[in-house]
């Protein structure tokens, strides 16, 4: 017999809302009955992807070396957050020129490539909002969606915490992650800023938000001028700054989620950790 449907999910199933949004920006919000948000999300996020592909002439994935091109090689790009857009791009443009004949990129490829990637990240924020809205339902307290704080924390590492009033944590995150990205850029002498040169590292680094985006466009992606003894560290640090910011955003999300559900964020996290520990003990005991 099916479990009774709780009031908390009266708005819709969270998984359905997320999957709809993943395939079509705004569709999850339409499913949840939030028509205006769904339409705006579709126009803005879908439009960003379309404009990005047009500006880049559909050539963004030509940045990938031919031997790296495969069925799943775009699964690690930020664009995968907007799966519908990515499928459309792959069907209409694929990896670009199949003959690998050298030809110039269009002048808009950098901004176009960035727009499509940002569309993927923006759609992930929409997925976060759709999932939480469906899950919280009638239990939701007044307050800004966790997705708002997640977007702020993406834009400037630490800003999500600052907006939540967690000043010390926000400052530490900002200093550590922006500092790590800056050090990575210095060690790699700016080589990390070019998506063409370091395709996947660039994708990870984009999670560091505006510091990464602005540095790329202000520097104009400097050319390689000589040997770079610490480039491995530089690329790793840049990518680490972005990936660690993704971990930070989970903390930001969890705090706001607990608040909006009327729970104590500290006790909530403690409960999660204890549950995790007892699961580990159970696994250890069963293995023994």
């Amino acid at each position: 017999m099916d479990a009774p449907r709780s009031d908390a999910r009266a708005g819709g199933e969270p998984l359905v809302a997320v999957l709809l949004t993943w395939f079509l920006p705004g569709a999850g919000h339409l499913y949840l009955g939030r028509v205006a948000q769904g339409v705006v999300a579709f126009v803005v996020v879908g439009g960003m992807y379309w404009l990005g592909v047009k500006l880049a002439g559909g050539m963004t994935f030509e940045f990938l070396d031919p031997e790296l091109r495969g069925a799943f090689s775009v699964a690690l790009t930020p664009e995968v957050g907007n799966l519908g857009g990515l499928i459309w791009q792959m069907r209409s443009h694929g990896f670009g020129d199949p003959g690998y004949v050298p030809h110039p990129y269009p002048s808009g490829i950098w901004i176009g490539s960035l727009l499509a990637a940002l569309s993927g990240l923006a759609n992930m924020a929409l997925m976060v909002d759709a999932h939480f809205s469906a899950r919280a339902g009638a239990e939701r307290r007044p307050g800004l969606s966790p997705a708002v704080f997640v977007v702020a924390g993406w834009a400037v590492p630490g800003l999500g915490h600052l907006l939540q009033g967690r000043v010390l944590r926000g400052v530490i995150v900002a200093v550590l992650l922006i500092g790590l990205f800056a050090l990575g850029t210095v060690l790699s002498e700016g080589a990390n800023l070019s998506r063409e040169r370091h395709f996947y590292y660039w994708g990870a680094q984009l999670m560091c938000g505006l510091p990464a985006v602005l540095t790329e466009f202000v520097s104009g992606r400097p050319p390689v001028s000589g040997s770079m003894p610490y480039i491995d560290f530089g690329l790793t640090f840049g990518a680490m700054a972005g990936l660690l910011n993704a971990v930070v955003l989970m903390d930001v999300f969890a705090w706001q989620e607990s608040k909006l559900l009327g729970r104590d964020p500290v006790a909530d996290r403690e409960k999660h950790r204890n549950r995790h520990r007892s699961a580990e003990v159970e696994i250890g005991e069963s293995a023994a």
Binding site: R166, L168, R169, I172, V173, L176, L177, L180, L183, L187, Y230, F233, T236, F237, M240, A241, L244, V247, V248, M250, D251, A254, W255, S258, P265, V266, D268, R269, E270, R273
Partner: peptide, 28 residues
């Protein structure tokens, strides 16, 4: 230099994962 860079890389990893594990600063 490699040891120093490793130490620099260790710091944010340890701090950020501790923040994720503990919602309160003191516990982290």
């Amino acid at each position: 230099a490699y040891v120093v860079l490793f130490a620099i890389g260790t710091l944010p990893i340890v701090v950020v994962t501790s923040f994720l594990s503990h919602a309160d600063d003191r516990g982290a």
